[in-house]
Amino acid sequence: MHLTLHVWRQKSANDKGRLVQYEVDNISSDMSFLEMLDVFNESLIAKGEEPVAFDHDCREGICGACSLVINGIPHGPDEGTTVCQLHMRRFKDGDTIYIEPWRAKAFPVIRDLIVDRTAFDRIQQAGGFITINTGGAPDANALPIAKTEADLAMDAAACIGCGACVAACPNASAMLFVGAKVSQFLHLPQGHPERARRVKAMVEQMDAEGFGNCTNHYECMAACPKEIDVRVIAELNLEFMKAKISGRE
């Protein structure tokens, strides 16, 4: 197939950047979207131009590196799918495709389609952990956890930290990401001793990073490649209120 691409090109963080139109040929419908970009990049290199830089690594939908907004939708049109698992059979010959980076103040562009997502790491550093040193753990079966609770924890823990929730949110809010981590530890007794401190610290860091505020559009859930439910945001809200009102540390 033949495609017209409008790709965001930006040399560096300080460069202004703009959308550039390209034509690309010989795309097979069996290719993944990123393989289409590989082929396109090869054609740029052949012309002596610099290839388009984009983040990607595992290409099996789990590492969370890939991060493209395709025709206005993070990770493209397929539900529950990362870009690396999106296939070209989803597109038609002659289609025009807009490819842009995640857009958020908290995710500045580094180059082309690559953004800096270390804000997520800093949120995790603020409290996304259980304080336990290696070696001091009791027997794994000493603490029974109801299957239903473990399943809820796992639903939330499936988050791959890609940032599509932020990219999709009209307000660039990170509530789904933060909610997922808070929810995981909320449904596990191991997470309870530090729950108040955790939620307060993570929300505080999230706010300081310059993410927007959730206004309950649920666009994040629609974009999430792991289909994490906005239940985790409601849980985060409640957990934060409890922590604040109780004054527990």
Partner: peptide
């Protein structure tokens, strides 16, 4: 043991055991 203590949500049986 270590991973469970960290909050890794391993699959469980209905009785709550791993």
């Amino acid at each position: 043991d270590q991973c469970v203590a960290q909050g890794v949500p391993f699959a469980r049986e209905y009785g709550g055991q791993l």
